[in-house]
Design a protein around this nucleic acid. Structure first.
Length: 398
DNA sequence: TACGCGTGGGC
DNA sequence: TGCCCAAGCGT
């Protein structure tokens, strides 16, 4: 193990570094809603939303979420579908379900009182080592480290050659984070580290000329700031294609949970994936074919490849020819999905009852789902994938 | 331990 | 357009 070019065990070094970075943060920090009105609840929501998600994306979601669920009691009392509706489009939907479960746990087991230490937060669903430290420091004022990708990169560069990828690196970063957070304003310190990583000490091409703490940076001292702590490349995404079908009846569209029965389609190629699987859990979506692999710059006509009688086979009664209403691209986890959207009018049974009552939670030929008016569908707990597909239906009608 | 889990924006 | 991420967590 190489010694760091900068001696962070020196009290004077740590005090100087902390003073300079906190002063920079006080002057340059972004004006964000969860900073403007800091609360434990609002901090928790922001930390959950910000996992793997950009600040600019989160801001409007955080505002709407807090307006609808102003405290843990409101969140715990809400149905999961409504919580997911307010998360709709944000992605990583498990976060929303865990957030809701944690709110119910806090209310049921602790009368609505939040944990008052790091370990208590860590025990809640969806709270890992980073989020527990962030909430404890930002919301409770405790000297807990919060090592996210930004902090790992910033501290990795400060350590310079002492922090090589592989064994020992994570431990060194964690030790340094724990050492530096002890002092005044631990929450502001953690935020300052993350802000520096987001605005200056970026993954590729760090803006060292704008850095307030360059004097303390081991990588810069060694002239390797742009080559140390750079993320490794990921495997390329897989190009696939699928057909989503909007079954329409009396101004409504059929929406169902993911993982429902697939629309059968014969293209002579093995599917790359049986569609959504565990994606979009808790959300509603449109019936879909499997996902088929496709060459980079071509696609086959999935609508033409549907077998005769496919509408009835899917559990609906056909009433007209299906028509193509749109096509869009959508990146989702490790896939690049080319989506064709088809609309087909169907008829509902004449007999009253759960199948005829389009307002009811329904079941068509043992196909769980429900009929939803095209106007209200965008406000429901649907994925961004479904949102784009529904937009095609609207465009085609309009 | 490595992988699955979403999405939008920058370049 | 394609590729690169961005305030992680659970299994």
């Amino acid at each position: 193990m190489t010694a760091s070019p900068v001696d962070f065990t020196d009290d004077a070094v740590r005090a100087g570094l902390r003073g300079v970075l906190l002063a920079w943060f006080d002057a340059r920090q972004r004006d964000l809603p969860w900073r403007r009105r800091r609360s434990l609840y609002g901090t928790w929501i922001s930390e959950m939303m910000l996992q793997q998600t950009t600040v600019a994306t989160v801001v409007p979601y955080w505002e709407r979420f807090l307006a609808r669920f102003p405290d843990v009691y409101a969140l715990a009392a809400a149905p999961e579908a409504e919580v997911l509706a307010h998360w709709s489009g944000l992605g990583y939907y498990r976060r929303a379900r865990q957030l809701h479960a944690a709110a119910r746990q806090v209310v049921a087991e602790h009368g609505g009182a939040f944990p008052d230490d790091t370990e208590g937060w860590r025990a809640l669903p969806g709270i890992g080592p980073y989020a527990a430290g962030a909430i404890a420091s930002l919301g409770l004022g405790l000297p807990a480290a919060a090592v996210d990708a930004n902090v790992r990169r910033v501290l990795g560069r400060w350590l310079g050659a002492a922090c090589q990828p592989g064994a020992g690196s994570d431990r060194q970063v964690a030790d340094l984070a724990g050492c530096l957070v002890r002092g005044d304003r631990p929450g502001a310190w953690n935020e300052a580290l993350m802000e520096l990583g987001a605005l200056v000490c970026q993954p590729r091409g760090p803006r060292c000329e704008d850095c307030p703490v360059g004097a303390y940076c081991g990588a810069r001292r060694l002239g390797i700031a742009d080559s140390v702590a750079v993320p490794e490349a990921r495997p390329a995404a897989l190009p696939v294609q699928a057909l989503l079908v909007a079954f329409l009846a009396e101004g409504r569209v059929w929406l169902e949970p993911p993982g429902g029965p697939l629309i059968r389609c014969d293209v002579g190629v093995a599917p790359a994936r049986e569609a959504l699987g565990k994606l979009h859990q808790g959300l509603l979506t449109l019936p879909t074919t499997a996902w088929y692999p496709r060459p980079e710059k071509s696609a086959c006509d999935l609508l033409a490849a549907l077998p005769a009688g496919w509408v009835d086979a899917a559990g609906f009664a056909g009433a007209g020819a299906p028509r193509a209403v749109g096509r869009f691209r959508h990146a989702i986890t490790r896939y690049r999905l080319l989506v064709d959207v088809a609309a087909v009018g169907v008829t509902l049974p004449e007999t009253p009852g759960p199948h005829r009552d389009i307002r009811a939670q329904g079941e068509i030929s043992s196909r769980p789902g429900r009929w939803v008016s095209l106007a209200e569908a965008p406000g429901l707990n649907i994925s961004q994938l479904a949102r784009k597909a529904l937009r095609c239906c609207g465009d085609a009608r309009g």
